[in-house]
Design a protein around this nucleic acid. Structure first.
Length: 455
RNA sequence: GGCCCGUUGGUCAAGAGGUUAAGACACCGCCCUUUCACGGCGGAAUCACGAGUUCGAUUCUCGUACGGGUCACCA
């Protein structure tokens, strides 16, 4: 005989308890991450507990290793759970497939209470023919449906394999785990009134429901891996920072109210408020994510950024003696995603083939002829430069420009083209010379002179 | 199709009866400048439509259009 009194005696009644209850389907999509985030924030804001529960009642959809992806995604994002399969807690187990006796017992009990009935080898919910049912959601307000409408079908609660369906497991677990606030997607909104009947039949108090609209790819499609939209892991490999993703995702469908947009997870824990949640779907805008990412990259301490950037720098800079810190510094303010880095440094190891037209630049007032003169003038001066530093090189250029009564750009443009072979570079001529070193810089200037002479 | 939900610039959005209808991204222009980026300044751009209610509707009500969700022994 199942001991209902014992399990119900374990239900915590100490403040806010929220839960994120994903199905282990193999990856974490952005919408799921956002739901997890909101759920977590509601708990943390209230000083409550955030619980992780794995909903694996569909054995057909179970994907090996998927639970680990959920763990790593959440942990990577800093969304730590207070109770869960791996850390335990007062209301175990936290994996639904391990709770089958509980569901079976409650399904039987519900039959006795008149809220369900046996139909062959399944148990279905009993819905009254008359009247209406009102479901209350914190975001959407009251939603009332007629009990005889099609959406109030007498759905299966306990399947023939003995496992519960989502609609049932969810109600049992939320109650038994003492959940006070449930955050979930709007796809569950239409089945929600049926929960009211379930809770009423058991005589249980319902948690607060907070329904969030989906994250969209465009006006008519949800973000989905199937359509090639990035998952959280994809974004990471595309060079986005976890903090930027979390920050951006938090703002998709939620507004802090003021003008501030940049919030760390800890700050969100302070300011989050369900009142700022929106009813309408939000379109995921990569351009804005890139902006957040760029902001986070620029705000990183140089040492931290250098460590993150090193693998990307190494993709194009193979020279073992390369000064990673110096290269990182050049690129930090100039990349929006880490994957921007390799292309920006592709001229460091070797001077690329480049067209002489690069020496023509209207704004700097240079062309091939002038550039040749500049390079010829600057070469001996640089050869004589005692300290090969950014400031040293810059000083030489500045002095030459002053002597010619010209703008610095007249000298710097040809020099930068000669040492980089690129129209756009991270940093100016002096920075690049400093990074390349004396020998290589002089060699490239000389090559530039020969190139222009050959024109 | 039935039922449920939504609709402020290209995107995220604030505003909840009286506002010059915030702010951010993206875009455009100018400035700064050693190219680019950063930064600064400025610009263009929004209340889906139609009826009500009201002295007055972006804001309230209804309808229309458009969009979404849901109608499984999936969650």
């Amino acid at each position: 005989m199942f001991d209902f009194d014992n399990i119900e005696a374990q239900i915590p009644h100490n403040g806010v308890r929220t839960r994120f209850a994903p199905s282990p389907t193999g990856y974490m999509h952005v919408g799921g991450l956002r739901t997890a985030l909101y759920t977590y924030l509601i708990a943390k804001k209230a000083g409550g507990a955030f619980i992780l529960r794995i909903e694996d009642t569909d054995q057909n959809r179970f994907v090996e290793g998927a639970t680990e992806i959920i763990y790593s995604t959440l942990r990577g994002a800093g969304i730590n759970w207070d109770e869960g399969p791996d850390v335990g807690g007062p209301t175990p187990p936290y994996i639904q497939s391990e709770r089958r006796e509980i569901y079976a017992a409650y399904a039987e009990k519900l039959v006795e209470l008149g809220g369900a009935y046996r139909d062959g080898d399944v148990i279905r919910q009993k819905i009254p023919r008359e009247g209406e049912t009102t479901f209350t959601d914190l975001i959407f307000g009251d939603i009332t449906v007629q009990n005889d409408s099609a959406s109030m079908d007498e759905g299966v609660l306990l399947k023939s394999d003995g496992l519960p369906t989502y609609n049932f497991a969810n109600v049992i677990d939320d109650h038994l785990m003492g959940i006070t606030h449930v955050v979930r997607g709007s796809e569950y909104l239409s089945s929600a009134p049926k929960y009211v009947l379930l809770y009423n039949a058991f005589g249980w108090e319902m948690p607060q429901y907070i329904t969030v609209s989906p994250v969209m790819r465009d006006a008519q499609h949800k973000l989905s891996k199937r359509n090639g939209d990035p998952t959280y892991d994809d974004l990471l490999t595309q060079g986005y920072l976890t903090d930027a993703i979390v920050n951006y995702v938090a703002l998709l469908g939620w507004s802090p109210g003021g003008e501030r947009e940049i919030f760390t997870l800890r700050e969100l824990e302070e300011v989050f408020d369900v009142g700022g949640l929106s009813k309408s779907p939000a379109i995921f805008d990569v351009a804005k994510l890139r902006y957040f990412n760029a902001e986070y990259i620029r705000a990183l301490p140089p040492g931290i950024f250098a460590a993150l950037a090193e693998p990307y720098i190494r993709q194009s800079v193979k020279n073992p003696n390369a000064d990673i810190a110096a290269l990182a510094e050049l690129v930090q303010a100039r990349c929006e995603v880490l994957t921007d880095i390799p292309e920006k440094l592709d001229f460091i190891d070797a001077l690329p083939e480049y067209p002489a037209e690069l020496y023509v630049h209207k704004k700097s007032k240079t062309d091939g002829k002038i550039s040749l003169d500049m390079l010829k003038s600057i070469l001996p001066e640089l050869e004589a430069l005692p300290d090969w530093t950014r400031d040293g090189v810059y000083g030489v250029c500045e002095a030459l420009a002053a002597k010619l009564d010209a703008k610095n750009a007249l000298v710097m443009w040809p020099l930068r083209i000669a040492v980089s072979g690129k129209a756009v570079t991270p940093g100016g001529a002096a920075e690049i010379c400093a990074v390349l070193g004396r020998e290589e810089s002089l060699r490239r200037i000389d090559a530039g002179i020969k190139k222009l002479e050959a024109e």
